[in-house]
Design a protein around this nucleic acid. Sequence first.
DNA 1: CTCCATGCAAAATATTTGCAATTCA
DNA 2: TGAATTGCAAATATTTTGCATGGAG
Lengths: 141, 141
Amino acid sequence: MSLDSWLTQLQSTGCRITAARRAVTEVMQSTERALTPVEVYDAARKRDPRLGLVTVYRTLEKLESLGLIQRVHHEQGCQAFLRAGEGHQHLLLCERCGRAVLFDGDDLEALFARVGEQTGFEIKSHWLQLYGLCQDCRTDL
Amino acid sequence: MSLDSWLTQLQSTGCRITAARRAVTEVMQSTERALTPVEVYDAARKRDPRLGLVTVYRTLEKLESLGLIQRVHHEQGCQAFLRAGEGHQHLLLCERCGRAVLFDGDDLEALFARVGEQTGFEIKSHWLQLYGLCQDCRTDL
DNA sequence: CTCCATGCAAAATATTTGCAATTCA
DNA sequence: TGAATTGCAAATATTTTGCATGGAG
């Protein structure tokens, strides 16, 4: 997914393309790690120095509602955002460097069926995140 | 796990058993839903009207560090707490009434092995929550 | 009697809202 | 041009900290 694709999607929902949105979008598009609003703010100000933190919040909200970015949940906090996966993808996060990787998790259906049966619940959605050490950090210790 | 068991565990780490801790513990022990600090505060004040919100925060922190309660993550927020599962248990939450159920998730090992192999990560831990409708809410719609 | 624990008030964070000025289309 | 967007300041919400008092052991 390219920058233009994200901007086009923003535009197609009636948004105008501004310097602020372009800066935030570029940052979120290119990061390997989940970023907090303030981190996005700091990074995006290098592209658009007039950018305000409030606009970062508003733009992140917009990108999230379009499904282009997702919130990443962590022990230490749940304010960080990352580009979203496509389809049934889940997050794998490096505990040391923060790098995030998406992986497919199609083979969870059997588990859901079993749990649904055992509990009487109708399973609607799920949420899975894995934590570990990425290849670089493993060899780097 | 009984109330006394939780209090004993608190005591064994050097904590004194006070009215405040007893009230918060009783609330967390008996709830079917994840509760925010303020919800705990409101419920626990019925048992100990002099209780302050700050003490609720401090007691929840203590219970969490003992592994007796866990934080529950939600789209709407991640401040709610619930009793913790034992062993490899995960959360199943009803989207309508909030009821929480724990289920075993031992059969995720194969998935982790596959993902580890594909990504080069050494998987250390994971985090899974399911969402759906509980039996009551299904028939109740 | 001795500390640990408490509640209050205030500080520190994090996020949202109101609004006049700006700017994209 | 005109409505959407912005940044600022201020309001809210959430969580943490300092400190004098109170209470468990």
